[in-house]
Amino acid sequence: MTAETARAALTPMKVMVKRHGLLVRLNHWVNVIALVLLLGSGLQIFNAHAALYWGKASNFDHPWFSMYAERSKDGAQMKGFTTLGSAKVETTGVFGASKLDGKWQDQGFPGWMTVPGGEFDLTNGRHWHLFFAWVFAVNGLIYLVTGLIGRHLIRDVLPSGRDLKTIFKDPHLRLKFSKGPESARYHQVQKLAYSGVVFLLLPTIALTGMTMSPGLNAAFPFLLDLFGGRQSARSIHFICANLIVAFVIVHLLAVILSGPLNQVRAMLTGKLAIIPSDEEAHS
């Protein structure tokens, strides 16, 4: 507990405390921009061959996940389908086949989800993806290196053994957000979620991306063994992207439930308002 948060504990009134360092805030917002553009351009690239496989190469008859369109006999109508394993669902209008300016498009993810938007554009999708992959990687490396040297990651983010043992006692699991000085630190569930994202999910999506590069395969053939081949790497890359989307949804919900203005302001200015808990306010 810092001196500021200690003072906040003693005085039952709103106190501003320093919450996020400048570099962490910069890393956070650069990451937001990079991930949004990487997701949209990634869906664009996926659309070039909307099927995923396991292993070294593509076994075209057996994708574990795919999206495709079926045309009506006159070609005027289109139906979209999404398959997962042996299950097949009609997803006309969204996945497999969607309308763009009134015209049917044979497209995995619809044009409004992709970067660039609209009609299929692999060329520019790749330009956006491979540029922001650099932004994402350099930004992430700066975050990890400074966070490890400055001990922010070990002190504030990585859960301790005790954190893991008491994880089910964390009130955040019941959507109870801390008030008072307790709100100025990460709790067990947050620590585990952020550590999973920072140390596992984001490095895995970067490494599987690199594993898809035929050039880098010559330099780091062990990455192919690690992920089970190039097509497996492509599948894991896609799964990681989905997990990041899931994380961001939960993350945004938590921000909304725990005081969105205060939280967003803290990530912009660095200062978090400590709102006294009920007991303190009444004492």
């Binding site: 330009h127 956006w128 491979l130 540029f131 650099w134 590069s213 050039g215 010559a218």
Partner: peptide, 27 residues
Amino acid sequence: ALKMLKVAEKWSQGAQRAIIGRHALAP
């Protein structure tokens, strides 16, 4: 925008050529 993005090709080429080395074989 595309002109800005296309610099990444040069970064990728430079970095890959430096990392991979002239003789490393594809798997």
